[in-house]
Design a protein around this nucleic acid. Structure first.
Length: 477
RNA sequence: GGGCCACUAGCUCAUCAGGUAGAGCAUCUCCCUUUUAAGGAGGUUGUGCUGGGUUCGAGUCCCGGGUGGCCUACCA
């Protein structure tokens, strides 16, 4: 048993020492091989023991650090019987160790450190998982530390996510947006249609909600005179979870004074093209079986036009009764209480969305679906809004922000009516936000983008769990 | 929410007609001074998810429960 060996090992070495002076990591040692070998430089390299291959008086031990693996070669005649015994018998796979020695190539041409001395760094009591088979998705998600330890591809994916988010921050800095932080705990939720998580503040004895969006706070900043703001933050929605949904997820929202949704569309297009160039293949992306070329201008299509193309007739003037009749014909489910625009949305998600593989901006949505968007400047009944679809799912959502407080109040009241009618995703009236808007809000363009889905797209993975380090799962047992 | 499938050693899995369980890796003992899924000899490892039923006998068949996966639906 490992605990028994630990005691014996503990008599010879410090089991949990405090620090280690590294001269090279595995990537640096590989890159500098020629010089290091020629000069017989002594390197000090720490990492985790991933395997042990012994031949009695020698040991080959692959040691893994964040960047990869470097093999260490221990010899009994070099280290002495006692020290060699430690490596051979008492040190286990999973333990952390620092080795010191010179680099050479073995007979089989593997870059190796010939160990002149070593420092024990930390003991592992539990063994690492078996190495020949992929861990199950459940095990990977539930025990991410093991997934990261065993799968370099998984590490790479998460490092890539980090790099993508850093690059988005750099992009917004170049565009002169200010990064801000707004409350997670909110007395009222809003900015999206979704059910919230509820919590309680003891000192104030009041109900608080975990935010479902940052929108209403970011717009207050626009009112306050900060002209370009953005936030990358977790939102929380109390809804189902599946391949593309997690109850907490990372959202990017940005707002710019004096812009409309056309400006936001350009910004979104520029940002995605830049990411595709930096993280894809020169602007081309492969997602599953699909190929997309972000160098090409993004397709732009009006919501009602896309729908007309599918249904074979313009639905702009079609009344609700006729729509319901059409829905039956297309096997589209209409639930009681669904308004005309909601039915149109249903048509859209069933008929159009699945076919939006290539990056496409869908523009000018029906009004009822967008309580925070400004009415279309030309077409009655529509709003100035766009959604970006890629590979069949929605990545971004944007509008010319409604800034007329009288109209905003009417929309809130309409939402309230929906809520009273039993729609538990409708938004409550936010008087505080309305008061801010009444102080005068400049014309503003706003955009929200799901970071997790964007990362899925850029690293070509079908499951949101692959891009979230820790996902929500039921507790075991 | 609906359908299908799975749950057996620490890990990945097997046990094809019901007769109280096995392989590889891990672990333990021994041999081996250039191995790389190292090798060789030997040993240990299980409330077979859970509760009930059928049966002389259940991991195996039946029913309930739990957990997970896939598909589907719902969800700015």
């Amino acid at each position: 048993m490992r605990l028994a060996k630990m005691e014996e090992l503990g008599e010879a070495v410090e089991l949990y020492p405090y620090r280690y002076d590294r001269t090279h990591n595995s990537a640096e040692a590989r890159a500098g091989e020629a010089g290091l070998v020629a000069a017989e430089t002594v390197v000090r390299y720490p990492g985790r023991i991933m395997a042990k291959r012994g031949t009695g008086k020698t040991m080959f031990v692959p040691i893994q650090d964040e960047w990869g693996t470097l093999q260490a070669y221990f010899r009994k005649d070099e280290l002495g019987a006692e020290r060699f015994h430690l490596v051979q018998k008492l040190i286990d796979i999973g333990d952390w160790i620092g080795v010191e020695g010179t680099l050479f190539r073995t007979r089989t041409d593997e870059l190796t450190i010939k160990v002149s001395d070593f420092t024990f760094l930390a003991k592992a009591i539990q063994p690492l998982p078996e190495k020949f088979h992929e861990m199950s998705l459940e095990n990977k998600s539930r025990r991410r530390h093991l997934d990261l330890a065993m799968n370099l591809a998984s590490r790479e994916r998460f490092k890539r996510r980090s790099a993508i988010i850093s690059d988005i921050r750099a992009f917004f800095a170049e565009e002169e947006f200010l990064e801000v932080e707004t409350p997670v705990l909110q007395p009222l939720y809003g900015g999206a249609t979704a059910r919230p998580f509820t919590t309680h503040h003891n000192a104030l004895d009041m109900t608080l909600y975990l935010r479902i969006a940052d929108e209403l706070y970011l717009k207050r900043l626009i009112v306050g005179g900060l002209e370009r703001v953005y936030e990358i933050a977790k939102d929380f929605r109390n809804e189902g979870m599946d391949r593309t949904h997690n109850p907490e997820f990372t959202m990017l929202e940005c707002y710019a004074a004096y812009w409309d949704y056309h400006d936001m569309m350009d910004l979104t297009e520029n940002m995605l093209r830049r990411l595709a160039v930096r993280f894809g293949d020169e602007g081309k992306l492969t997602y599953g079986e699909h190929e997309m070329d972000f160098n090409q201008p993004f397709r732009r299509v009006r919501f009602m036009d896309a729908l007309a193309g599918k249904v074979g007739q313009d639905l702009m003037q079609t009344d609700t009764a006729a729509l319901k009749e059409l829905a039956r014909k297309h096997h589209i489910e209409v639930k009681p209480g669904m308004g005309r625009d909601k039915i149109l949305d249903e048509f859209f998600s069933v008929l159009v969305e699945p076919e939006l593989i290539q990056h496409t901006f869908v523009m000018d949505h029906p009004k009822e679906l967008s309580p925070l968007a400004k009415a279309h400047r030309k077409t009655e009944g529509l709003v100035e809004r766009f959604e970006l679809f890629v590979a069949g799912f929605e990545v971004a959502n944007s509008f010319s922000e409604l800034n007329d407080p009288r109209e905003q109040r009417r929309r809130f009241v309409a939402q309230k009516a929906l809520m009273d009618a039993g729609d538990d995703e409708a938004q409550p009236i936010d008087e505080d936000f309305l008061a801010a808007m009444e102080q005068g809000m400049p014309p503003t363009g706003g955009m929200g983008l799901g970071i997790d889905r964007l990362v899925m797209l850029l690293v070509d993975t079908a499951n949101i769990r692959d891009v979230l380090l820790f996902t929500h799962m039921r507790p075991e047992q």
